[in-house]
């Protein structure tokens, strides 16, 4: 099998809030087309890790490479870097004053400077991909949570990113709405998109992830493919966490 291109590489990432050390030396890498899922108890820095990687929340220490090129943080450069990394939020964060279509278009017209017509076509294509074309003219408040999150995914996709990061994309959803979002994420993974996902959905992790990363207290405890990490974990903490999460969420 040919060696796939490395998309993202993170080395020794640190982040503290005051005395609270949220990230204590995280290293990971993702190759093209891979899906990596980060699991772990809440408050262990999983979301912080994603925002640090995107400099929405600049890390205190650590190095990050995108497609083999190291990111040197500067206000100007970072906007270009962010275009290449899609981000899907737990709270959706759709722009309240724009329709679904407007939400997907705004990055194309304002950041990538595409013509209106071209942007509209591209945006409609992405909405179609997540099954939201019928709701293109509706405003966020008129959509269900699941629909909003699908628009959020289309918004990230429209930028043709190298990878998309998902920050607990289904945590704010009612259980019956999770399926439509997870289905779309699965489809993306199968189409070869590179995904970095923070989630509690073990079903998704088992079925889709190439690798699962178990994180606790700002450190990576264990990493491995699902069959190993779920069925045959090495570390005691991983076993305890998996037991707890099965109790909580069931064996789907």
């Amino acid at each position: 099998m040919e060696e796939r291109k490395e998309i993202l590489r993170v080395e020794d990432l640190h982040k503290s809030y005051g005395t609270n050390k949220v990230l204590q030396g995280i290293s990971l890498n993702i190759k093209q087309g891979q899906t990596k899922v980060i699991i772990g108890p809440s408050g262990t820095g999983k979301s912080t890790l994603l925002t640090c990687v995107n400099y929405l929340n600049p890390p205190d220490k650590g190095r990050i490479w995108l497609e083999g090129e190291e990111i040197i943080y500067s206000e100007r450069e970072i906007n270009k870097i962010r275009q290449k990394k899609g981000f899907v939020f737990q709270q959706f964060n759709l722009f309240n004053h724009l329709t679904a279509l407007g939400n997907v278009m705004v990055g194309l017209t304002e950041v990538l400077k595409k013509k209106k017509k071209e942007a509209r076509e591209k945006a409609m294509y992405e909405l179609e991909r997540v099954g939201m074309a019928d709701c293109a003219e509706q405003y966020p408040a008129e959509l269900s949570g699941g629909q909003q999150q699908r628009v959020g995914i289309a918004r990230a996709l429209a930028m043709d990113p190298l990878l998309i990061m998902f920050d607990e994309p289904t945590s704010a959803l009612d259980p019956e709405l999770m399926g439509e979002v997870l289905d779309n994420m699965t489809k993306l993974a199968l189409e070869g998109m590179t995904l970095l996902v923070v989630t509690h959905e073990m079903g998704f992790a088992r079925a889709v992830a190439d690798d699962i990363i178990f994180m606790e207290n700002g450190r990576i405890v264990e990493e491995g493919p699902p069959e190993k990490l779920i069925m045959n974990p090495e570390k005691k903490r991983t076993i305890e966490f998996l037991q707890k999460i099965t109790q909580l969420y069931g064996e789907d």
Partner: peptide, 14 residues
């Protein structure tokens, strides 16, 4: 909501 600003920045807007 603060998320509006975060989302805009995540798309690469200045």
């Amino acid at each position: 909501a603060r998320g509006q600003m975060t989302a805009a920045r995540s798309l690469g807007m200045s």
